[in-house]
Design a protein around this nucleic acid. Sequence first.
DNA 1: TCACAAAACTAACACTTATTAGTTTTTTTA
DNA 2: TAAAAAAACTAATAAGTGTTAGTTTTGTGA
Lengths: 197, 197
Amino acid sequence: MSKIVTSKNGTKKDVIIKKAASLFRKKGFKGTSMRELAENIGVEASSLYNHIGSKSELLQHICFKVANDFMLQLHETEKSEISTTQKLEKLIRFHIHMMMDGYDEVFVANHEWKQLEEPFLSNFLTQRKLYESRMIELVKKGIQQKEFKNIHPHVAVFTILSAVRGLELWQRHKKNVSIKEIETNMINHLLYGIAKQ
Amino acid sequence: MSKIVTSKNGTKKDVIIKKAASLFRKKGFKGTSMRELAENIGVEASSLYNHIGSKSELLQHICFKVANDFMLQLHETEKSEISTTQKLEKLIRFHIHMMMDGYDEVFVANHEWKQLEEPFLSNFLTQRKLYESRMIELVKKGIQQKEFKNIHPHVAVFTILSAVRGLELWQRHKKNVSIKEIETNMINHLLYGIAKQ
DNA sequence: TCACAAAACTAACACTTATTAGTTTTTTTA
DNA sequence: TAAAAAAACTAATAAGTGTTAGTTTTGTGA
């Protein structure tokens, strides 16, 4: 049929991955066939293999791109010279913006990582565990420095991550409530509800 | 091979559904084959059809059982003669216990409902929307009655539902942190952080 | 113990899956 | 404009899917 449309600064592989993320989110990785993906791009399924290696490679790419983005931001935040409270706020805001800007990709990384094959599955889980434990360390530090109340660090981090992941639910209501409104509310709820006053 | 083992007060269909919920959670609905399900029960795939109608029927059963349980509890709570704060607390505690006792089923209802076919998909979404809007009404009433702060009801309900759904994450850490500890923490965070003091 | 019903089995079906081989068309480069 | 490279196409493969038909085994009640 027609040719793969490449927006500027984007290879054809990027176009395929972007569309894959969108379909994987809506129908799941296993629920999306290569024929379906191809049709959505306007090409035959076999043509995709001129640009990618395999279907699972697509999932790997999406999951590890997201994981990497979060890891990078965590690393940068850790070594920046601001208060622990500000560090936590920065991380939460990053989560919120990732969820808003890269909705499909973040959703897929959150929900479809189970479909990764070894050794990628183990690799992904290790990275996630590392991320969590470094956030816990951050909260512990905040408690030591008397910036935070004497809360359970593990519980606090998981509550934050849960609430942020819940931003998915808001995708359906983008019209009714503004993003800014949600962001302000959530930051207040999560951060200054914890910080010592 | 051997026969389906029926625990007392459980039909063979119940055994199949229970195992299906477990597998659907671990590998997804589309990622679980009927042969795999059968093998886990100790039977050939075709034998399952002596007890169930189809694979999708299994998903329907799981999703609507969960939806029904929540709807029933909501209905009962609404008409019980306690304060609005107590009503909300009761609902949150129910969510927590459903997540702990019926983990597989709740998880599947939360993540695999997309794989439902019409008209079940529409039906499920309608029911979920109804549930949410009735929770929002409850929060609105609490504000009117000056039991709650003047918060955004929609945001409040979604924050609560997000946090409760996040209990999934805790399944991995059951040993390290007690359920009671999480429950207390979460109720305090969600409810009495909202209620007027 | 014998007949009936329930539930297992084997074998096959029609269909979909990801992926490959080989060929033709399109685009880029010189 | 001709040669080379990129990317599309058609057609086919082997494996896996849910499900059905027909048969045999198992358990139950008279």
